[in-house]
Every structure is written in structure tokens, then in C-alpha cells.
Design a protein around this nucleic acid. Sequence first.
DNA 1: CGTATTTCTTAACTTAAGTGAACGAGTTTT
DNA 2: AAAACTCGTTCACTTAAGTTAAGAAATACG
Lengths: 192, 192
Amino acid sequence: MQDTLFDFISKYISLTEDEKNAILSLDLFRSVKKGTTLLKKGQKSQDSYFVLKGCIRIYYIVDGEEKTTAFYTEMDALTPHCVINKAPSEYFISCVEDSILTVSNADMEVEINSKFPKFELMCRILAEELLAKQQIDFDEFKTSSPEQRYLSLIQNRPDLIQRVPQHQLASYLGIKPQSLSRLRARILERKS
Amino acid sequence: MQDTLFDFISKYISLTEDEKNAILSLDLFRSVKKGTTLLKKGQKSQDSYFVLKGCIRIYYIVDGEEKTTAFYTEMDALTPHCVINKAPSEYFISCVEDSILTVSNADMEVEINSKFPKFELMCRILAEELLAKQQIDFDEFKTSSPEQRYLSLIQNRPDLIQRVPQHQLASYLGIKPQSLSRLRARILERKS
DNA sequence: CGTATTTCTTAACTTAAGTGAACGAGTTTT
DNA sequence: AAAACTCGTTCACTTAAGTTAAGAAATACG
């Protein structure tokens, strides 16, 4: 399990045994049950997450309705908006499946970053990479229809369609659950 | 003009006169005419931009049609995807108005970052901030209708509606120019 | 085990966006 | 000055998503 974390880090920087031990001594690993809420709207949290196993999601509640906007699965890192701008959270984070995460708070990160300057570099590269990737995703979303988005989801994250409830997928695609059902029926219809 | 750049930087770190001079000696400032293409699809560029005055946009060409996905105006920073992942660009960048920009290439940034480690910190904070801000924008886009997006654009970036052609705004909102016209007429109709 | 609840699908109807075409106003070209 | 082009708007028509409601299927729970 720890290897998953180090495999991830090794994509950006290389670690000595000392550095690995320093990380392990922080006791970051947490096991969380499906349905657990990690962050609520209005809370000011300090915690960032890295998914070792399982799936967590971000959702808003608008007019009493849940709107899921992001899923994080194995090897995904998530620093909530409220950690960065120190304001109350605008959204919820909860566990879609039983999951194993690392949970690190902002203070720990400052400490690690000052002890091992390498980490600062990794954080910058990672943030830039995520920024660029997210922009491409955003662009693709803007320039395509719900049906195209669903088809490309099948291509790019087929596991999500299996492991996540349809109504959560629907809002992730920017539509209502009924529209997703219809859209799926339409695609099947055309295939036959 | 230079003050605009230093005002921006001062939001993240404080600079000594020496550091300011080091930046000025890089000769970053460029004046570009409306319509100039700064980056073409397929090119591998090293350049990042910071808008001091004017407006630039990112657009794709899909099935022969321009799809504008982002506008950058005063005090906005833009590092193209191709600079980060060193692959050919998937999009175009062009000038919406006569503009004044800073243009910095990746090598210069590596040099500045190693000479003044402060910059590494600024880049990380900036990237994290942009990442968080962009995610909120993406979330808002996903959870709202074209009409709601247009109304919130009026609230948040009213200048864009004046300075940018309608058909570019339309694709920015994820719809066709005809739909934007209709949508505007609908809103006016309701007001009266 | 059976009941309650959630989840997914289907259907009929409404609303809004996509499409193709036409028009006028304003620019640019020649 | 006329012709060609671009841009925004409008219209009629098509297609797809939103809405409301109902029922089937799967899951959770006492």
C-alpha cells in the first residue's frame, strides 16, 4: 500500500530511505468506509487527500439537489479549495467506496517542504501538471455534447461507469439522471 | 507598465531591487497587434504569457469551426499545455485586441528559479491557486445552464461581453452563436 | 424474510439548443 | 463605388435535454 504512494512520488522526484522514513513516520494512512463524509460545506479543513485505493467524490448541494463534479480514484491527489484559500468549503467530499487514503494537513506539508526542499519542487510540478490536465478536460467539456462526453468517459475512465451510481455520473456529465438513461438507450438503439 | 507585473508578483512574494532588476534585464515585454497568432496547433512552444494590457484567447478548430475556450485579460497568466507536457499544442492562441504582454520561455524560468528560490515558491502557490480557481469555474460550468452561465458572466466579467465578438463568447459558453442571440433576446423579453 | 428506500428506467410533455437559411449592417477588398 | 466578407440577428424546423410522474429493480435494514 505504501508502495503506491512512493510509486506516485517517484514520478516526480527520487527519495532516499531517510526521506521515505520521514514520510512514513507522519502516520498518514487512513481507512474510510463507503458513505463517510470527509468534508462538509461551510467547514474550514486543512486536509489534503491521496487515494491509494477506492473512490471519493466532490459534490455540491444546489436547490436541495446533489451535483457531483469530480471523482478521485487510485493515484489521484486532491487538495480542497478551502485549504488553499482558507475560506469555508463550498462543497462536500465523500467516499463512494470503502477506501484507503493518505490524509495530510497543511502544517505537515509546510514542515516537510522546509525539511526537504525537493517537495516544494514536486508540489509545483504536480500543481502545474494538474492545472494543464484540468484545462484540457474543461476544454473538452465545453466543446462537446453530453453524449460525446459519455462516450469519451467510456474510453477514458471505463471503471467509473461500473463503480459509481448513475445519478452521480449524470451530474458529472452535466445532465439529469433521466437524460443519461435516455442517452444510453439511444446509443444502444443505434448500435443494433 | 512594469508596475503591473511587480504588483502582480507582490501578491505572492516580496522582491528586492536587485531581483526586480534581474527580471527587467530579461527584456520580457512585447507589444502584439490584434489578430496576431501567438501559438498554432501542432507547434511546440516554450513560451508563457502574462497579460499587462489587452486580451488573448485560446481556441480549438473542430470540424473546421473555431471553439474558444478561454480568455486572458489584464493580470492573467497563461502557461500553455504544450510547455508543461512538451507535446505539440492542441490549440491556438491569438490576440483579441492590441495587447502588451510579457513573454518568458521555460529556460529563463528555470534560470530565475534557481537564482531566486523564492520564485519556485511563487510558482507553486500560483499554480495551486489557479488550479483551485479553475476547478470552481469548471464546477460552476457543469452545474449550470447556458443562460445561467451568461448571466454569471455579466456579473463576473462584464468587460468580456463588450470587448469580445459574440461568436467567440458563444463557444466560451458552450453554445452556438445563434443560441446566444436567442438567449439574449429571451432575457430582454423577460425583463420588459 | 419482508418491508422500506434508493436507484434506474420509461413515458408524455415542455423547453431550449442545434441546424440551415436568409437578411441587413458594417468592413474590407479590389 | 461595387463586390465580397464578416458578423450578428431572426425564423422555421429538428433534436435533445428538463420536468413530472409512475413503475420496476436492486439494496439496505429491521
